[in-house]
């Protein structure tokens, strides 16, 4: 096994996913298969290869900077309009700090 159920639970925690027990077992099986395939990359010698993070084209460093000017933004109603729970123009979440 490339990945244990214990590791699956740890990663699910990092990803903020509350996996059910049956999901943990299935996830371990699926990830194991994928990671086994991914091992194929170890056949390649990449010692002096520059990593490629982006498809980059020639442009000046400032090419995407704009003038710092005021401009219209979303209204408060638009900004919170899709939230599940709001109040007083804010997003509401369960209480974080106990009094």
């Amino acid at each position: 096994m490339k990945i244990t159920e214990q590791e699956v639970r740890r990663v699910a925690d990092l990803a903020n996913l509350a996996l059910r027990d049956d999901e943990v077992a299935r996830m371990a099986h699926d990830l194991d298969g994928i990671l086994t395939h991914i091992d194929k990359l170890n056949e390649l010698d990449t010692t002096n290869v520059e990593p490629m993070a982006q498809v980059l084209f020639d442009a000046e460093e400032t090419a995407t900077l704009r003038e710092d000017q005021e401009r219209p933004t979303l209204t408060n109603a638009e900004a919170v309009g899709n939230a599940a729970v709001t109040g007083g123009g804010y997003y509401k979440v369960p209480r974080v700090i106990e009094r």
Binding site: N42, L44, T46, V49, P51, M52, A53, V55
Partner: peptide, 12 residues
């Protein structure tokens, strides 16, 4: 991740 980015360079 780094290995994959290097492989991406080779493919390109």
């Amino acid at each position: 991740y780094l290995k994959a980015q290097k492989t991406r360079r080779l493919i390109t």
